[in-house]
């Protein structure tokens, strides 16, 4: 994306240089997400994350698991720059989120797609407009929007429901609309925050299969889940959080 190239801004990481001693510069071949000694303490005094170090590389599919209060939400919020780390560096898609000014947050978010547990579809808009919405945000032309949205909806099997309102869809269908919206701008990174939390078990498998196919096409997928059977059945890397620290990082999908 053109708005990622600001050579003079130190919060943007140059693509072709490696400065190992400089902690906020990495290359794109390097991790798409990297936490370096990241800690986050909220104003209430809660230590959500403690000295987290992790690397997620382009093309990976990663499950993030852990009990409630383990730090999963904070981990995801830091990646989406909804929260800022107190110490350490969070590097995502070529941006150093710790040093990034607030006005650059929209540019960061345009490099990622986000799927929510509660779907987050606008009830007054139909399926087509809900997906098109994400393209309008980046100022895409109407004819491109029409073409791409139609394509995305048929990819998630909802081409025939383009003019339906979200309330007329099942949970699984709504989540597929959310997925189409997250992918419409072709992000390098897809963040799915418990995407199967509000759908039936069969649909859960279908959604993770869909995410796996997307991952096979090159998109990095980071999925938070509580469903251990999904983690076991899909054999992707698993990061387990507990008490704000990473207690396990298994490449083969074992918990």
């Amino acid at each position: 994306m053109d708005n990622q190239v600001f050579p003079n801004d130190d919060f943007i990481l140059t693509p072709d240089t490696v400065f190992p001693e400089d902690k906020h510069i990495v290359t794109p071949e390097k991790p798409i997400i990297e936490f370096r000694g990241v800690s986050k303490t909220y104003q209430t005094g809660t230590h959500a994350l403690k000295d987290v170090n992790i690397q997620i590389h382009p093309g990976e599919f990663v499950f993030v698991v852990g009990a409630s209060g383990a730090g999963k939400s904070t981990f995801m919020k830091l990646i989406m720059r909804e929260e800022k780390a107190n110490t350490g560096d969070v590097l995502v898609n070529g941006y150093n989120l710790t040093k990034m000014p607030r006005k650059q947050i929209p540019m960061l978010r345009r490099t990622m797609g986000i799927v929510f547990q509660d779907f987050r579809l606008i009830p007054t808009m139909d399926v087509f407009d809900n997906v098109a919405f994400a393209m309008h945000v980046v100022g895409e032309k109407p004819n491109v929007i029409r073409r791409e949205v139609a394509k995305a909806l048929s990819q998630v099997g909802l081409g025939h429901k383009a003019r339906s309102k979200p309330a007329e869809l099942s949970g699984g269908e709504q989540q597929r609309v959310g997925l189409a919206r997250a992918l419409i701008n072709k992000p390098k990174l897809l963040i799915a925050d418990e995407p199967t939390g509000n759908v039936d078990p069969n649909m859960s498998y279908e959604i993770v299969e869909m995410l796996s196919r997307i991952n096979q096409q090159g998109t990095t997928v980071l999925m938070v889940t509580h469903e251990h059977n999904l983690v076991r059945d899909f054999h992707h890397r698993v990061i387990m959080l507990e008490g704000g620290t990473i207690v396990a990082d298994n490449a083969e999908g074992t918990i």
């Binding site: 989406m80 006005k103 929209p106 540019m107 960061l108 978010r109 345009r110 986000i114 929510f116 987050r120 606008i122 919405f133 994400a134 945000v137 980046v138 919206r181 701008n185």
Partner: peptide, 16 residues
């Protein structure tokens, strides 16, 4: 709020 939160999630600027 929902609409605004989605706008922010997909990278809408404040002026948008």
């Amino acid at each position: 709020k929902l609409e605004i939160s989605i706008m922010k999630a997909v990278g809408a600027t404040d002026s948008f």
